[in-house]
Simulated scan of single mutants.
Amino acid sequence: MATRKSLVIDAESIRKRARAHIDQGAVTEGYRADRAAVIKALNESLATEIVCVLRYRRHYYMASGIHARSVAAEFLEHANEEQSHADQIATRIVQLGGAPDFSPYGLLARSHTEYVEGQGLVEMLEENLVAERIAIDTYHQIIEYLGNDDPTTRRMMEAILASEEEHAEDLSSLLEELGKKGEPAKKAVRR
């Protein structure tokens, strides 16, 4: 028979530590991750989300053709959701005592994804799907790295990952509807 662990909270010690390290904000002794590494990864994720917002917004405005209305609506929805992700990430960076890097200088270098304008709906869909797949893989790696050392950031990234997976499925379905699913994406050309 397994013995049950009892929970004993030393409130007095917790109170003393909280007062002694008030300058550290939300980060307490229980935080085990490398804060500098987490903030760096989050700033790269922030850049990724900003690049995705910009690419989706451009595609929203540039969509044309018989299927443009429904595809453009999807682009706008994704752009708004990517902006929400960026806001969540920036908030978490501040909670960890960092500064969110919104500087346009080096934005593409910090981003995991590329900014590809795309010509026509199919290429726009493909480029956005490629970007979502990149975000999915990199966010998986960040979540794995965080483990139990920073559960708050991990849960935030897991929620963002779920959204990115949904975006990828939406884009894949739109490509299928256009009869283009299964064709390899064209080589990205940076502009």
Rank of each mutant, 00 (worst) to 15 (best):
T91V: 09
H85V: 08
N128Y: 05
P104A: 04
F102A: 00
H85M: 05
H112T: 06
N128L: 10
A109L: 06
G118V: 09
L129F: 09
Q95N: 00
D87I: 14
D87V: 15
D101M: 05
S103E: 14
T113Q: 09
R92L: 10
G97H: 03
L121E: 05
E114W: 11
G97P: 00
S111D: 10
V122M: 00
T91Y: 10
A99R: 13
E127F: 15
N128F: 08
G106K: 06
M124P: 02
S111P: 09
G118C: 10
R92I: 10
E127N: 15
N128S: 15
V116Y: 00
L125W: 08
P100W: 13
G106H: 07
P100D: 11
L125P: 06
A86P: 06
E123I: 05
A86G: 13
M124E: 07
L107M: 07
G97M: 03
S111G: 11
L107H: 01
Y105I: 14
Q88N: 13
P104H: 00
D101C: 01
G97V: 00
I93Q: 02
A90T: 05
R92N: 11
A86C: 08
E117W: 05
A99W: 11
I89R: 07
S111M: 09
G97Y: 06
S103I: 13
A99T: 14
A86V: 10
M124N: 07
F102Y: 07
S111N: 09
